[in-house]
Each structure stands twice: as C-alpha cells, then as structure tokens.
C-alpha cells in the first residue's frame, strides 16, 4: 500500500510540474490579452521537435551548452511571430475574443500539420538528460522525471520574480489590468502582448522538451496537455497566474489518484466533472480572489 501511495505522489508531482509550466503561460496570456490561446498546446509539441532537431544537428547533449537555450529562444520567437501574425491584426475589435478563438485554432492546425510535414509521423524521443533511475526507499523515479520535478519550480519562481519585481514584469501585469492607464505611463502595450506570447511559448516549449525525454513525441502530443492546462487555469481561478500554478499541482495529484482508482479512460471525464463542480460552487476558482483579475 505504501509503495502505491508513494508512486502516486511521484507521478502526481511529475504531472503537476508539467501542467504548471503549461498553465502559467496560458494564464499569463489570458491575464494580459484577455484571450484564450488554443495553440498553446502545440507550442509544447513544437518545442519538443525543435529540441529534437537541434539535438540532431548539434549533438544529443541537448542539456549541456547552449542547445537548450537556443531551443528556448526559437520557441520565444515562434510565440512572438504567432502574436504578430494571428492576434495583432485584431486588436481593438469588439469581437476580438471570438476572432482569436478562430485564429488560434487556425494556428494550431498549421503548426500541427507543419510538424507532421517536417518531421513525419514516426515516433521520436529525446535523449534523457541523465539516463537511469533513482531508487530511494519506496521512491522509484527516473532521473529525467526528477529533473522535471526540480526544474519546474525553479522556472516558475523565476517567472514570479520577473512578473512582480522587474519593470517589464510589472508592465505586463499593468497592461492586463488597464490598457489606457498603461499607455499614459509610456508602456508600449502591443510589445507587452508580444513579450507575453513569446514567454508563454518558451514555457510550453520547455515543458515539451522535458516531456520528450520521458515519453515518445508525436505531432499531437500537445492536445492533452492543452486540455489539462485549460482545466487547471479555470480550476485555479481565471486570471490568477499564481492560482494556476497551485491548481496545476492539485490537478496533477488528482490525475495520478484517478488513474489508479478509476483507470486511464475515465480520468479525463472525472477531471472535467470536477471542473464543472468548481465552476458551480466556486466560480472564482480554487485559489482565485473574488476579483477576476488578481495575480
């Protein structure tokens, strides 16, 4: 029994870490632009394939040297280009929320098919950073998973510090709360949108790179994490990045428990049911303040 609990905890922690990396970006784009980016999941896919390509060309030691940084920079550029091409033309329109549902869905299909065309349907995998497993008492975890569990909180802490203690971070939050006031301070509003898209894509890409070291890569690998990130963001309280991160771990643990108890097929349905219940009884989300735009 104890070994089961431990393995549920470990797998919950791994899932939670991945979801936190995904959901923080989704949530940040929601708080700054007020739109839901359906292409956020495919950013994860593209991140994994970009890392794969870089590993092919520069050697499999993706994790040492500049390869991973290069992959993250490429992802930030992909996110920024996405904003520039598919979101920016629609700023200021009354129906922007609706239009961007369509443009982000369009972007999703383009990127997914692009990945399929460039890299083909064959399953791929990244070399794990450090191969092998670690066993310690009842805990049995692959080194790659351990890295995921350790890297995610560090990255999220860095994100928190940037958003709260740097001018650019404050500017991103300010733009989400009051565009006109932000303009009168001299903040370039559309550039903040670009930055937040770029940052979100880099975070999702990182999740993809980390995941591709433990699971096989496919062009549609981002679909399920997008769904989970959506649940997480609503669960944590729309518009609260901190709430999303907390909720990511809650959902991760819940998923691990559900997989063990009701099985892998019923788990997504149960998670959606939970989301509906949360919306019913706590519309502001698990950690959300009454005010819908708190951080």
């Amino acid at each position: 029994m104890a070994d089961i609990i431990v393995s549920i905890l470990v797998s919950g922690l791994v899932l939670g870490s991945l979801y936190a990396l995904m959901a923080s970006g989704l949530s940040m784009v929601w708080t700054t632009l007020g739109i839901f980016n359906f292409a956020h999941g495919v950013s994860m896919t593209v991140g994994a394939y970009v890392a794969y390509e870089i590993a092919q060309r520069l050697g499999p030691d993706l994790w040492v040297g500049y390869s991973i940084l290069l992959a993250l920079v490429v992802m930030a550029a992909v996110g920024a280009a996405f904003e520039y091409l598919l979101i920016r033309p629609f700023y200021g329109r009354d129906d922007m929320v609706l239009v961007t549902i369509m443009t982000t869905l369009a972007g999703l299909t383009f990127l997914e098919n692009g990945v399929l065309t460039i890299w083909g349907p064959r399953l791929k995998q990244l070399e794990p950073l450090i191969p092998g497993n670690i066993s310690y008492g009842l805990v049995n975890i692959s080194r790659q998973e351990l890295i995921i569990v350790l890297v995610a909180p560090v990255i999220l802490l860095a994100l928190f510090l940037v958003l709260n203690h740097t001018q650019i971070g404050r500017a991103i939050r300010a733009v989400g709360q009051n565009q006109k006031s932000a303009q009168l301070i001299g903040i370039p509003v559309t550039r903040m949108f670009l930055v937040s898209f770029g940052l979100a894509a880099a975070l999702a890409g990182l999740a993809g790179m980390l995941l591709a070291g433990v699971r096989l890569m496919t062009p549609t690998m981002g679909a399920d994490p997008l769904m989970k990130a959506l649940i997480v963001v609503i669960f944590g309280g729309l518009g609260s990045i901190g709430g999303s991160i907390g909720a990511a771990y809650v959902i991760g643990f819940l998923e691990a428990i559900l997989i063990f108890t009701v099985g892998i097929y019923w788990t997504p349905s149960m998670l959606f049911l939970l989301m509906v219940l949360v919306l019913l009884f706590r519309p502001q989300g698990l950690f959300g303040a009454k005010n819908p735009s708190s951080l």
Binding site: R170, A171, Q177, A182, L184, L295
Partner: peptide, 26 residues
C-alpha cells in the same frame, strides 16, 4: 508630456509601491 487623466483607476490589483515604480517606466 505627461497626462494625468480624469478619474484614472490605475491598476486595481497592483500595490501602490509597484505602481509608483511603474511610473518611472519611461
């Protein structure tokens, strides 16, 4: 040229100190 606008509500979820710091954005 700085415009202090009529009834500006600024950023409701940011702390006073943060908003003052942001004022030095230019």
């Amino acid at each position: 040229l700085i415009h202090v606008s009529q009834g500006n509500r600024l950023f409701s979820d940011m702390m006073v100190g943060e908003v003052l710091a942001l004022g030095a954005y230019p």
